[in-house]
Write a protein that binds this DNA or RNA. Structure first.
Lengths: 157, 157
DNA sequence: TCGAAATTGGACGTTGATATCTTGTTTTAC
DNA sequence: GTAAAACAAGATATCAACGTCCAATTTCGA
């Protein structure tokens, strides 16, 4: 239901929020989120253009979020990459009803509205404050090793 | 949020349900739904393959729905053309949590679940029984002409 | 049986999403 | 100031979605 690019952007932002307010390099994010690095850099550029993240070149540089995780919503990320397409007017171009949608498109738009609302109400903090044994991204860079006493294996992937 | 093809399929099915149990030709549906006829025929073929519609060649032929409008849900149509992508397992391929999704993907899947549920609960009849002055498709082939006393113009579109 | 109506199926073209690669450009450390 | 680190940006490749076109097939009616 969402594009691959949106998925990548969300992973990257979760990763950034997890390490906020420190900076992450594209390389670090790519490894943590398993997103192809060259493509990830494009996605991150889009986030920078949309004023969601800030980039700093040079040694010690990287990407940082502009907002704090508790002020940043899923909606903002999704909207930056691929806005949720709300149905404002009749897709068939009928002018007979002003903003009145036919039942079909009313339903479709309601579905989109529910998704949008859900995303607007979810902050990155919400995702990071794992309620019970579920970890930030799917990776569990901090908690997992501590909780289970497992040494993270050398990354060969 | 939904592909153009799904939109076309839904329009076509609404059109078919509106005229059920009679058959419609691809041409008729194309005009009513403003979908390019050659492409519509592909979409209809998919509906036939998925046992949602039946086709009859030759003079007097056309497409008919297999189920009655009150037994056919939006979900069945959407699922036939482009199944709602539920997130069953971790997209990053982490095996560390069985079917436990991380908070991010849990949220995304919940959104998909809500949409799916909404579609499962909506039948074509629901869409056709317009509550108050809203018409079946965006077109209003039956009611409009009657209500307003307007002769449908010769089809030049 | 012949022809018109109608769907079926394959080939083709276009566009955008996805992804990679290479070459800059900026910045910091020494 | 020079080199390494890191992002920026453009060109390119690939594939699926979208859409068109045309020939083939089925079916009904005269």
């Amino acid at each position: 239901m969402f594009s691959q690019t949106v998925e990548y952007a969300l992973r990257a932002v979760v990763c950034l929020a997890d390490r906020a307010p420190s900076a992450c390099t594209t390389e670090e994010i790519a490894v943590a989120t398993k997103v192809p690095k060259p493509y990830l850099s494009k996605v991150l550029q889009a986030l920078v253009r949309h004023k969601i993240a800030r980039s700093q070149r040079g040694i010690g540089g990287g990407i940082t979020l502009i907002k704090t995780p508790d002020q940043l919503t899923l909606f903002e990320i999704v909207n930056a990459i691929e806005p949720i397409a709300r149905i404002e007017t009749c897709p068939l171009g009928l002018k007979s009803h002003g903003k009145q949608l036919c039942p079909l498109h009313k339903r479709l738009d309601e579905a989109a509205a529910v998704v949008q609302k859900s995303f607007e109400e979810t902050t990155l903090s919400d995702l990071l404050s794992a309620p019970k044994g579920v970890y930030p991204l799917c990776e569990s860079p901090k908690s997992a090793g501590i909780a289970e006493g497992v040494q993270p294996a050398k990354k060969t992937d």
